[in-house]
Design a protein around this nucleic acid. Sequence first.
DNA 1: AGGCAAATGCAAACGATTTGCAACTGGATC
DNA 2: GATCCAGTTGCAAATCGTTTGCATTTGCCT
Lengths: 148, 148
Amino acid sequence: MTKIDRRTERLTDALRRAGVRITRQRAALLAVLARAEDHPEAVELHRRAEAQVPGISLSTVYRTLTALEAQGVIQRHQFAGTPARFEHTETAHHDHMIDVDTGEVVEFANDRIERLQAEIAAALGYDIVHHRLELYVRKKARPGTDQG
Amino acid sequence: MTKIDRRTERLTDALRRAGVRITRQRAALLAVLARAEDHPEAVELHRRAEAQVPGISLSTVYRTLTALEAQGVIQRHQFAGTPARFEHTETAHHDHMIDVDTGEVVEFANDRIERLQAEIAAALGYDIVHHRLELYVRKKARPGTDQG
DNA sequence: AGGCAAATGCAAACGATTTGCAACTGGATC
DNA sequence: GATCCAGTTGCAAATCGTTTGCATTTGCCT
Ligand SMILES: [Mn+2]
Ligand SMILES: [Mn+2]
Ligand SMILES: [Zn+2]
Ligand SMILES: [Zn+2]
């Protein structure tokens, strides 16, 4: 069983558990999500799913994404100035850097930051339900490189 | 000169510098912003400004907010699931905790987190342009307190 | 086959924000 | 103070991503 099969199964099971039917269009979207290594937006997922199910509608994509998110098997990221982007949650928690020039998304994880956040919240009498940490970045100018 | 006068002046000067006229409606909004100690959304700012200039339109509020943001004298925060919220930038950089139950916004600042962020970006070859750190939190259950 | 709830595609609604435009300033210039 | 003109206003309409209503289709169970 490949990594992508395992992911597809995880997504499929989550929907089954939620009592929703696995239709042709849903199966296609789940496969697309399982295969995705990037952070595509709904329209892009729709585009990719159309390869398998030509007539699939964007509403169906949105509806299924909402269901998957509710089950916690995918995450919706609302980065600044773009439509929401999606990714499966098979990988452990991480945060994101967004290259402001290219739009590229780079993942990172840092335990110290996670712990500090929890400490800060605790000190003020709160527990963290979830958080959002996004670094909007630009490639460091390497000496001798002129980026017009 | 009071703190609020100073803030109003800062906002006014920023607009003047940008070559825009200080009209009745803008003056009202600037005063509202200078006076605000919370993180109001556009509609709320509009509501407050109407006290001074009854006919002021929401478009004018939005247009002025956009101009002020472009000058860097106010900040626009896009918290999850709510319209944008605004605050003047007289105070130093800080991040936010949002109480998921009440919507209350609590500010905090932490140098260690700021430094860690810069280090993480640097290690991957990036400089941070700006960032977003939001903790969505819930009041810690105090022992002996039942929150239905 | 028959029945029924769930899912689909489409078009229309949504909510926050932006924009086009004609009417209206507010200053500067005479 | 009349004139001029670019900047500003309020309004309505447009925008964009996303959600929703609805008539039709589908998938499953009997
Ligand atoms: Mn990711
Ligand atoms: Mn703040
Ligand atoms: Zn994190
Ligand atoms: Zn910060």
